[in-house]
């Protein structure tokens, strides 16, 4: 079992309106099979033992499906490995003596709650603005009553993989939420069930994104490589296309 020691330079911020600063810690004798968050757990245990405030970081499932965790590790959202969330990153991706700079996702629309924890409710409000469909209430509909072509189902499923972690916002030079929003739009608009609202959905979600203070897309595609689920920028193209058509037809 290999053990390494790494130097952590961590963003500490006591509250949303407090001034943040970097503080250095050493994570000693860390098992390389430990996950990144487990390493932080070890550091925090040490901090608690010393009577210091532990490093606050968000996490839930720790298996890359919930979208709760996330931080910028040495300038990369979710760390150096592609298509992984921070909780899926392991210490074997680092070498003994490495310095790891740990920062929260930075965007005006995602205010820092504490240390590495950001408030992602702006993304929830974007989903609330248009991420719904109209369904008949009552008994459950018959299976396969609405035919869905395989290709459309695949595309909707591909887009639906977005976990709303905000890595796209963190990596975007404009702190734009276009990739996340386009995934939600494509997910619903690719299916027959999502058609009744498809025109209004894209308009409402974009309006909400602007209201939240996210930037716009400059087609640099930093989001695509940062996305732990590999959501393609082709969904941004689909969003742009739908937006143009819906905007022209709107009153």
């Amino acid at each position: 079992m290999k053990k390494i020691t790494v130097k952590l330079v961590v963003w500490r911020q006591n509250g949303p309106d407090e001034k943040g600063f970097f503080k250095t810690y050493f994570a000693e004798n860390i098992d390389t099979d430990a996950s990144f968050l487990e390493m932080l757990d070890v550091v925090n245990e040490g901090l608690v033992k010393n009577g210091s405030e532990p490093i606050a970081f968000a996490h839930d499932c720790r298996e890359g499906i919930c979208g709760t965790c996330g931080a910028v590790v040495n300038g990369e959202a979710h760390g150096p490995r592609e298509k992984l969330t921070l909780c899926q990153l392991h210490m074997r991706s680092f070498s003994n003596g490495d310095t790891i700079v740990l920062e929260p996702f930075r965007a005006r629309a995602l205010p820092i709650v504490k240390d590495l924890v950001v408030d992602r409710s702006a993304l929830d409000r974007i989903v609330q603005a248009g991420g719904y469909i109209s369904v008949r209430t009552g008994s459950a509909p018959d299976a396969n009553a609405i035919p869905v072509p395989k290709k459309d189902a695949d595309q909707a499923f591909d887009a639906a993989q977005c976990i709303g972690c905000a890595a796209c916002v963190a990596a975007c030079p404009n702190a734009s939420a276009m990739l996340m929003m386009s995934a939600k739009v494509s997910h619903l608009s690719s299916l027959p069930q999502g058609q009744p609202e498809s025109k209004q959905r894209v308009l409402d979600m974009v309006s909400q994104m602007v209201k939240e203070g996210f930037g716009g897309c400059s087609n640099e595609y930093q989001c695509e490589v940062a996305c732990p689920k590999g959501i393609s920028v082709k969904y941004i193209a689909q969003l742009n296309r739908q937006y143009l058509l819906s905007a022209i037809k709107s009153e």
């Binding site: 910028v72 040495n74 965007a107 030079p173 702190a175 734009s176 930037g215």
Partner: peptide, 9 residues
């Protein structure tokens, strides 16, 4: 404006 504070790295 959308980026609140810059990244150290």
């Amino acid at each position: 404006r959308a980026r609140n504070g810059s990244y150290a790295v």
